[in-house]
Design a protein around this nucleic acid. Structure first.
Ligand code: ZN
Ligand code: ZN
Ligand code: ZN
Ligand code: ZN
Lengths: 163, 163
DNA sequence: CCTGCAAATGTTATAATGTTGCAAACTTTG
DNA sequence: CAAAGTTTGCAACATTATAACATTTGCAGG
């Protein structure tokens, strides 16, 4: 899978989104899952945003485009996308972001810039290994790992306030 | 500081709680912070529970003991306790738990049993180091680390359903 | 003691986030 | 097509968190 541009670096984000959607379609086909219009649209909205979106942000966006959606619509779509590894939920933000390693069954580490709000998903095997080792030390069997790091992204360290 | 018993191992929990409260009083004295009755009571309730407590759980408990509290009362007490490193917020649970390393300025790793709900706070320097290294690789400056691992605790792996 | 300030708490209302339950529409399958 | 299963619409509700402003409390000077 080609490495996508880092979110806080200038890049052709439309291509980013199309690629993600294409990947998602392929993954769903492969898993015999139905990426319905709503689900796909929610995924697209999430990808189009450079920052994690709250469920109610998504709801509002659907509203402005004529789709008269209620909360369950959005949450159900999000559940589906989470289930199939297409998005992640950022617990510390109550928000959702597109998975940059969809289909790879992995545990993401998220670097969240407090200044500009951008989120970078790392695939950090060392971190995962360290967590698993620490858990093993106390005979704990990990199933799901939430790793979210709030701080400053490179761009915001020198010159704060990038959107 | 003496190591406290692991939460899911039988132990004299009252002693646990008194020790935590004594520590808290010492820390607040040292920091010139006022551990008022409400704040102390909230901390005590959190410590008395073996499992993380939601703000509204605390609210209800205060209610049953005649204290007619509203949400802001609890949230303000919790803010104070968070501020002074006496409790942690578990983002994935929207709940709060007593810090087992209060005063040590540290980044806790939380092992959350999905079966019994108990939470174990680890001081896992290896994990922290791994996270910091991964962040450094992309020039991200971490400020706060959220590490929450959901899974099965040792007791619940064999015989599920421990309270 | 009193006075005045700052910190803490009380109180009411409201915002933000997430869920339940059931009915209608759509898809798949035989 | 008919049955069964899945997805969506919809209304109500539950939970978690904050805003705004009034009141009380603790404390330092006068
Ligand atoms: Zn991912
Ligand atoms: Zn930034
Ligand atoms: Zn701690
Ligand atoms: Zn357990």
């Amino acid at each position: 899978m080609p490495e996508r541009a880092l979110p806080y670096r200038p890049h052709n984000h439309e291509a980013c989104v199309s690629q993600a959607l294409a990947d998602a379609r392929a993954i769903c086909r492969q898993q015999n899952a139905r990426l319905t219009p709503i689900r796909e649209r929610v995924l697209e909205l999430i990808w189009q945003s450079h920052k994690p979106l709250g469920a109610y942000d998504i709801l509002a966006m659907l509203g402005t485009e004529g789709h008269n959606a209620a909360p369950p619509t959005v949450y159900r779509a999000l559940d589906f996308l989470l289930q199939h590894g297409l998005v992640h939920r950022i617990a510390s933000l109550n928000a959702f972001t597109g998975c940059t390693h969809a289909g790879e069954h992995h545990r993401g580490t998220f670097l969240i810039c407090r200044e500009c709000g951008n989120v970078l998903e790392l695939d950090a095997p060392d971190v995962t290994r360290a967590v698993e080792a620490a858990a093993a030390d106390v005979a704990f069997r990990p199933e799901e790992i939430t790793m979210e790091v709030a701080g400053r992204c490179p761009r915001c360290q020198g010159e704060p306030g990038h959107a």
